[in-house]
Design a protein around this nucleic acid. Structure first.
Lengths: 194, 194
DNA sequence: AAATCTTCTTGAACTGGATTAACTTGTCGG
DNA sequence: CCGACAAGTTAATCCAGTTCAAGAAGATTT
């Protein structure tokens, strides 16, 4: 499948674009290769793009007051990623987004996205659905963080995202789940014994 | 101002509807009075509506495995509220949404919303913006919960939402901030002394 | 205005998870 | 294939926040 073919599926599984709409939509994207450890978003800079991951693995994180990293989002094949707050309001980012492995992404820039959404109802619908999905996902995460223990959060993550769990380094997962690397290490060990 | 006048402002501050579009949009809403302690969403039932709060105060919460309540969202005048996950996917709710005081809401039902969005690009845009705002808000909350201590979370909430903090009962706020009532009580006391 | 229920407070004992620190194992560029 | 740094482990100690328990202060109903 071509690299845009994957995104095409992502779109058509959620809404309907005509042939013409699809073709024009893809002209808005640029395919970019991102090397491991390379940043695509950095604090202080206004994030110009939203990214669709064709292949690879990226991680968004913030740095807390005491210098610890906190993972906000992972993205693997067929996921969208950006610093949501900063992108939609076009404010300087507060996150880093870094490739955890060599990756291929499709990027669309803010102005183009705005123009497309204005121009065509179907495009607007697609981005509305993306936003809704993001909101729903974030709401679930808030609930999980409020209601579950560290151990339960780990177990749930393993069940829900086994492919992500397998790909990302332990320290990144720990900081996503809101615990230290050391504690996650203990949980894993405990798990193996039982 | 009429009750829809408030919602009209909410819309026009975010996007543009023509006179005709505005008029038709409002026919989709029904104004409902909700008494204190009354539920508008309950677990097991598919939430049929999304609610715009004209006046009053509502609270969305889930019940954890050990029976504790966890507040997911508050809504006061000029806010939207629903069980987001359940509403957009039309699945049985997992939350309660209850009025903390006698309130007036405007409700739109799922099918009507779908029809409106399909019918008119401007409506679609408005709901896209609502979803984006929700996503951004939830993302900020995830970050705060990961990076800040209970005390910092409380201080930040007071600063950002003083009107909500003044309205809602202590136990509801505590469970929103992810701490026990007892601990919040101590934090307040500590705060008064300094 | 008494009775009942709901919310808030206070303090003592406890614990899930953090911190610190030293060590082991991977990984990869040269 | 080696040197260096990044990632993961283990164990001792510590603390932010919970739990339990009992009472005080508001609300709401009769």
């Amino acid at each position: 499948m071509s690299t845009t073919g994957q995104l095409q599926q992502h779109i058509l599984r959620r809404t309907h674009f005509s042939e013409v709409e699809l073709a024009e939509f893809f002209t808005a994207f640029r395919q970019v290769r991102v090397k491991k450890r390379q940043f695509i978003v950095q604090p202080e800079f206004v994030p110009k793009h939203r990214f669709y991951v064709v292949q690879g693995c990226l991680r968004a994180y913030v740095i807390g007051d005491e210098g610890q990293e906190h993972t906000i989002q992972f993205a693997i094949d067929d996921w969208w990623i950006t610093d949501y707050n900063s992108y939609i309001y076009q404010q300087p980012a507060s996150m880093f987004i870094m490739a955890l492995e060599d990756s291929i992404v499709l990027q669309i820039d803010y102005e183009t996205e705005q123009r497309l959404k204005q121009q065509c109802h179907a495009y607007e619908t697609y981005f509305r659905i993306l936003a809704e999905t993001t909101a729903a996902h974030m709401a679930r995460r808030v609930i999980t963080n409020l209601t579950k223990t560290a151990e339960q959060r780990y177990e749930m993550f393993l069940e829900r995202y086994p492919d992500v769990a397998a790909k990302v380094p332990q320290y990144a997962l720990a900081s996503y789940l809101g615990m230290t690397t050391e504690y996650l290490s203990k949980l894993r060990h405990k798990r193996l014994k039982s």
